[in-house]
């Protein structure tokens, strides 16, 4: 997740400007004015959400490929067994398959990651206008999930 910190720092830069610009409207309790700024923030935060989750997707792919490569080349068939099938090669391995190979599918994180992935897809394809809860909370989740991945 090399670029995650950079993406988050960019978001922090935006958020500082947002907070400064909205201050006068909040001081005056200008709800309509606040709503107008929040609409722009929503769009930017959805974009940041997609970019940040993309970093996590890359980390999953990397862990998955390491796991496959380490086992598929093992001369001992009992350890290679199942890992050397062609469906685990190439770029078209489904996200949930890759995830299940590097994270316990019975863990609580597994379901949340899949749900976040589904939401990420809807965001990326214009399927939702829902706001992001908290980019900061997302960052914490991504680092925690990343720490749970196993090669």
């Amino acid at each position: 997740m090399q670029k995650l910190a950079e993406i988050k720092a960019t978001y922090n830069w935006f958020f500082a400007h947002y907070a400064a610009e909205i201050a006068e409207r909040t001081r005056q309790n200008d709800i309509v004015g606040i709503d107008q700024m929040e609409e722009r923030r929503d769009i930017l935060e959805r974009g940041i959400f997609v970019l940040m989750f993309g970093q996590f997707e890359k980390a999953i792919t990397s862990a998955f490929e390491s796991a496959v490569n380490a086992r598929a080349t093992n001369p001992d068939w009992t350890r290679r067994r199942g890992w050397d099938v062609s469906s685990l090669r190439g770029k078209k391995v489904p996200f949930d398959t890759k995830l299940a190979m590097v994270l316990d599918s019975q863990s609580s994180s597994f379901g949340r990651i899949l749900q976040t992935y589904a939401t990420r897809n809807h965001c990326a394809h214009g399927g939702t206008t829902n706001a992001v809860g908290s980019i900061d909370a997302l960052e914490a989740d991504l680092y925690r999930w990343h720490g749970e991945l196993r090669n």
Partner: peptide
Amino acid sequence: KGLWVIGA
């Protein structure tokens, strides 16, 4: 802000 927000 809202109930159905991403991640919360």
